[in-house]
Design a protein around this nucleic acid. Structure first.
Length: 103
DNA sequence: ACCTTGACCTTGG
DNA sequence: CCCAAGGCCAAGG
């Protein structure tokens, strides 16, 4: 993964406002129009290895579920930020919390 | 060059 | 809603 690609990912994630979220696929799209490469998996790879400095808990999969390894923490932080969750409190309500740079 | 491995996505049953 | 299958992109052995 190029340094350039990694930076692009971290930039986008860093811009997500509290209480809002973006999906791996969504982030991948934004970056694709900018760099012309990369997909959801690449975004996940970058975050898994270098996501420590950004609000990674605001990134969820297409189903609104936070990354499995840190689901607990993520859900706690999201709740603390007032992010809308589904009744079971296990998934983010994408309909209400989805965000995009254009927003 | 071939195969395996992911913090993924979409579709169909 | 859950699961399986196939598709996906890039890195590493």
């Amino acid at each position: 993964m190029s340094e350039e690609y990694a930076e692009a990912v971290l930039d986008v994630v860093d811009a997500i406002p509290p209480g809002r979220v973006m999906t791996y696929g969504g982030i991948a799209e934004v970056i694709f129009d900018r760099l012309g490469r990369g997909g959801p998996r690449q975004v996940g790879t970058v975050l898994s290895r270098m996501g420590g400095e950004v609000p990674w808990w605001r990134v969820v999969n297409a189903s609104g579920r936070p990354p499995v390894p840190h689901a607990r923490v993520a859900l706690e932080r999201l709740t603390a930020e007032g992010c809308p969750l589904t009744p079971d409190g296990q998934r983010v309500s994408l309909a209400r919390a989805a965000w995009s740079p254009a927003d």
